[in-house]
């Protein structure tokens, strides 16, 4: 057990160091950091002084170690474009992205699970077939296209919902929320649905497959033999046993929801981290790119690590398999 945890932890640290190396390489070697910090009229002597002060002449490893140390403290330097500390920019944008992602994940769960249960119970029904066909079409439609179609329908033709931005926000300490105002909630509807759709089809298909699997097992047959009502069997016994993989997948998908938020934020001009990142790529604003890169990698590594460890604790079969597999390697 301890061996597995340590190995997994070591792997995570390696991944983070690799990502940090890429981020550092970008920061240090793409363009000249000095040129990006000072104006045209700075003399060569002053440039040299600044170079020395920032430690840009130190050996590679020293500079990299300094970068990692600063990154661990959340210090990624100053954005070339915004002329403000990157950490400040990200903290400002973080609530918007997190609110959008969490609401989208909730929608995906609350709609995807019932749809999956329904299609699992009524395999041949008309509604089930429509759901399945729709989900295939949904997978083929790129996220941004769905967003555009929603904007066209509800924003331009019907004029029901705002098409860009976050609406009015309320500040709670450093956290700004759009969940407490009417305009904020209205602005959230379309981006959240756009972001949720793909995950929703994924969850629906997963729940459907799991339901079909569970309904074939012996304990369901015994439950029927005991004369339990359909409702008790389907929801009390079958659904409960399908939820472990669903929760795991949703946990893992939280990371990709935040990544896909880049696209949704761009379509709806939602002022989150994704939009910040896209603008940074377009303008080659390297400190912002490096910071986003490290942050999203940290997010993924933590989620994957947590899910792996939880699995290991929850499922004893996996423990045996893992030990056997790693015992040979």
């Amino acid at each position: 057990m301890i061996g597995f945890v340590l190995r997994r932890l070591l792997q995570s640290i390696l991944v983070m160091l690799t990502v940090a190396l890429i981020a550092f390489g970008l920061f240090r070697y793409v363009g000249d950091p000095i040129n990006n910090l000072v104006g045209q009229d700075t003399s060569a002597v002053e440039r040299e002084q600044l170079r020395e002060k920032l430690g840009l002449d130190d050996p590679f490893l020293v500079q990299f170690a300094r970068f990692v140390k600063n990154a661990a403290k959340g210090d990624f330097g100053i954005s070339y474009r915004h002329r403000r500390p990157v950490a400040e920019l990200i903290v400002e944008r973080l609530p918007a992205t997190l609110e959008l992602s969490i609401v989208a994940a909730l929608i995906a769960l609350l709609v995807g699970v019932p749809m999956g249960v329904y299609t699992g119970l009524h395999r041949e029904g008309f509604l089930s077939r429509s759901f399945m066909t729709l989900s295939l079409v949904g997978v083929s439609l790129p996220t941004f296209l769905i967003g555009i179609l929603l904007i066209l329908l509800f924003g331009v033709v019907l004029r029901w919902l705002p098409t860009f931005g976050r609406g009015e926000v309320v500040a709670l300490g450093w956290w700004t929320t759009g969940l407490l105002t009417v305009s904020g909630l209205k602005a959230l509807i379309m981006p959240a649905i756009t972001l949720a759709l793909f995950q929703m089809t994924l969850i629906m298909r997963l729940v459907r497959a799991e339901m079909l699997e569970v309904l074939r097992t012996d304990y369901i047959k015994f439950a029927r033999a005991r004369g339990l009502s359909n409702r008790a069997i389907h929801f009390g016994h079958a659904l409960k046993n399908t939820l472990v993989p669903v929760i795991t997948i949703t946990g893992l998908q939280l990371g990709s929801i935040i990544a896909f938020a880049i696209i949704t934020e761009s379509v709806f001009q939602w002022p989150g981290m994704g939009l910040l990142f896209i603008q940074a790529i377009n303008e080659v604003d390297i400190p912002v790119m490096a910071a986003y890169l490290v942050m999203i990698a940290l997010f993924f590594v933590v989620i994957n690590l947590a899910v792996d460890l939880l699995y290991y604790l929850v499922d004893p079969r996996l423990r045996v398999d893992r030990d056997r597999a790693t015992g040979h390697g």
Binding site: P142, T143, F144, I262, I263, I281, N282
Partner: peptide
């Protein structure tokens, strides 16, 4: 298509 849509 997505990358081109995002302008990159």
């Amino acid at each position: 298509a997505t990358l081109s849509f995002l302008g990159v």
